[in-house]
Design a binder for these strands. Structure first.
Length: 287
DNA sequence: TATTCGTGGCG
DNA sequence: TCGCCAAGAAT
């Protein structure tokens, strides 16, 4: 079985990430998972350390002003995640007695927590058996199990079933294997240049056995960035984050020449709760 | 189901 | 240089 190869490999080779250290609470794991959504480990590490020092339990974060939360989030990207984490903290404090729930359904009911994050918290925060399916795991399964060069479009139910079939019955063992599958995809079975020479599952890999055929299926379209609303929103948020207080509209006008796009983006930030207008007409992070 | 939502490093 | 990529979720 794949699991029997990955288990010892992970125990020996796992990176020493701060949220994996003994004593990390489920809350710490939840925070790390929010930050790691679409964001590389190296960029998350310092922000997570600072975050956990300031807000060691959910009610601490829930009590913080939005502006502080958004500034602490810094340049991790997708700042709506910070809003959702803030809201999730409030829900945990009010509805779960300030304790992160271990139940997957209860987790998935929290803002910003989807199928992946709910199972990741159950597995890594509580040591439970929960099939954790992220982009790394999908790639590892596509190669090792299905002999395909890459994963292709998500097949949510089938992906969950694939991973479920790989996990040992025991909770603690399954949690380690789940972490190991992700680790393998992150450091060995990578998207671009897989390091098959370092793979513990080399001899069991269906893709290697098939001669590493090139992936021919549908590719997910690459997202552009330059000139998009995402770029403009990012520039506006950077001004609001950096400023010590409310800023004049003039300061925001300076970040983008296209007034129509600029206004649309500013409006969307207001709608998203990432910015607000003060009584005197200036703009700021939410109080 | 297809888009949208930031940011920055790397080959 | 620039396309690709990085522990997804919401709509």
């Amino acid at each position: 079985m794949l699991a029997e190869l990955i288990f010892p490999w992970f125990r020996a080779q796992a990176r020493d990430l701060p949220w994996r250290r003994p004593g990390t609470t489920p809350w710490g794991v939840l925070v790390s998972e929010f930050m790691l959504q679409q964001t590389p480990v190296a960029r998350v590490e310092p922000v997570w350390q600072d975050w956990m020092g300031r807000w060691p339990v959910p009610s601490d974060l829930a009590a913080a002003p939005r502006a502080d939360v958004l500034r602490a989030w810094g340049k991790l990207g997708y700042p709506r995640r910070a809003i959702r984490l803030h809201d999730a903290a409030a829900a945990i404090a009010e509805q779960h007695g300030d304790a992160v729930p271990s139940d997957v359904d209860a987790l998935e009911a929290l803002p910003g927590v989807g199928s992946y994050t709910a199972r990741a918290v159950a597995a890594f925060g509580f040591g439970l058996r929960a099939p954790v399916v992220d982009t790394n795991v999908r790639r590892v399964v596509a190669r090792a199990v299905h002999g395909q060069g890459d994963a292709g479009p998500a097949r949510t139910r089938a992906d969950l079933a694939d991973v479920d079939a790989l996990l040992p019955r025991d909770d603690a063992e399954a949690a380690v294997v789940s972490a190991g599958l992700m680790e393998l995809g992150a450091v060995v079975c990578t998207a671009r240049t897989p390091r098959c020479g370092s793979c513990p599952a080399l001899d069991r890999c269906a893709w290697v056995a098939a001669g590493k055929p090139a992936y021919d299926g549908p590719r997910k379209p690459v997202q552009g960035f330059a000139g998009t609303d995402r770029q403009v929103r990012g520039k506006l948020m950077d001004v609001l984050r950096t400023a010590p207080g409310p800023v004049e509209r003039i300061a925001l006008d300076a970040v983008w020449s296209d007034a129509g796009q600029r206004d649309r983006c500013l409006h969307s930030l207001l709608v998203d709760g990432l910015a607000e207008q003060t009584d005197d007409g200036r703009f700021a992070l939410p109080a």
